[in-house]
C-alpha cells in the first residue's frame, strides 16, 4: 500500500509546486495517473520512488516512511522493491537484451546475480515474447520489443511496486494496448502494484483507478 499525506514539494528553481494532501493506492491496484504536461505526474513517481524528497508530508510504502530513510536505504529499497519503466525505455545500447534485463543486478550489491536469477530472466523473456532476441542489442529491436525488455528489467527483481512513466508513449496504438495488457498480466502475476503515468485517454479504462492531475486531486474510481 502506498500512502502520501500532506505532501508539499517544490523544485529549487521555484517555478513548480506540488501539494498532495492525501493519496492512497492499495496493494495490487493498477492506477493510472493523467494530467497535462508539467502538472507533476513524473514528480509524483519520483516522490514515491524516494528519488525526490518532499519538503513536507510523508510517503509511506507498506508502512515504511521512505522520505525519512537515508540515501542508501532508499536506493536499496528502490532497486529491490520498485520496478521502473520509462517512456524512452532507458535501455543501454551497449548491453544486449539479456544483459539489459539483468542490469539492476550488476549495479548494486543489494541484488545477487545467480543462476536462479538468470533462469527467471529467461522465463520472463519467454513470457514477454522476446526470448529469441536475448543476444541482440536494443538498437536492433522495434519500439515494442524494447519496451518489453524494459518491462522484463523492471519485473525481474520481483518488485512490489511498478512505476511506469509514459510506458506506452512511444508506441503505435496497436502496440500500446498490447504492451499494457502484457504489463498488467505480469504485474498481476507478481502481485505488484502499478502506478502508471499516461496522457493517453484511451488507456484509462484499463486501470483500476485513475488519478487525474487536471482537477487535483480528484480520484476517479472506475
Amino acid at each position: 500500500m502506498i500512502r502520501l499525506s500532506n505532501i508539499h514539494f517544490s523544485y529549487k528553481s521555484g517555478d513548480f509546486n506540488l501539494s498532495i494532501p492525501d493519496l492512497r493506492v492499495e496493494a495490487g491496484e493498477k492506477v493510472g495517473v493523467v494530467g497535462p504536461s508539467g502538472s507533476g505526474k513524473t514528480t509524483l513517481l519520483n516522490l514515491v520512488a524516494g528519488i525526490l524528497t518532499p519538503e513536507k508530508g510523508s510517503v509511506c510504502i507498506n508502512e515504511m516512511e521512505i522520505n525519512c530513510q537515508n540515501d542508501t536505504t532508499r536506493r536499496d529499497f528502490r532497486i529491490t522493491n520498485i520496478g521502473f519503466i520509462f517512456q524512452d525505455f532507458g535501455l543501454l545500447d551497449y548491453l544486449d537484451v539479456k544483459d539489459n534485463i539483468l542490469h539492476p543486478y550488476r549495479i548494486t550489491g543489494a541484488l545477487k546475480l545467480n543462476n536462479d536469477v538468470r533462469d527467471r530472466a529467461d522465463k520472463l523473456a519467454i513470457q514477454m515474447g522476446i526470448d529469441d532476441k536475448l543476444n541482440r542489442h536494443p538498437s536492433a529491436l522495434s519500439h515494442g520489443e524494447r519496451q518489453r525488455v524494459a518491462i522484463c528489467r523492471a519485473l525481474l527483481p520481483g518488485p512490489k511496486l511498478v512505476l511506469a512513466d509514459e510506458a506506452t508513449g512511444n508506441l503505435d496504438p496497436k502496440n500500446k494496448v498490447h504492451i499494457l495488457e502484457l504489463l498488467f498480466k505480469n504485474v498481476d502475476k507478481h502481485d505488484a502494484t502499478l502506478l502508471a503515468v499516461t496522457h493517453d485517454q484511451e488507456l484509462l479504462p484499463y486501470f483500476d483507478k485513475v488519478i487525474n492531475f487536471n482537477d487535483f486531486l480528484r480520484e476517479e474510481t472506475l
Binding site: 528519488i51 542508501t72 528502490r78 521502473f84 543501454l92 549495479i107
Partner: peptide, 15 residues
C-alpha cells in the same frame, strides 16, 4: 540519460 536511468534504478552516484 543513461546515467540518469541507472540512478533511478537505484544506483548511487558513487557507483
Amino acid at each position: 540519460q543513461e546515467i540518469e536511468v541507472i540512478f533511478k534504478l537505484g544506483c548511487s552516484r558513487a557507483t
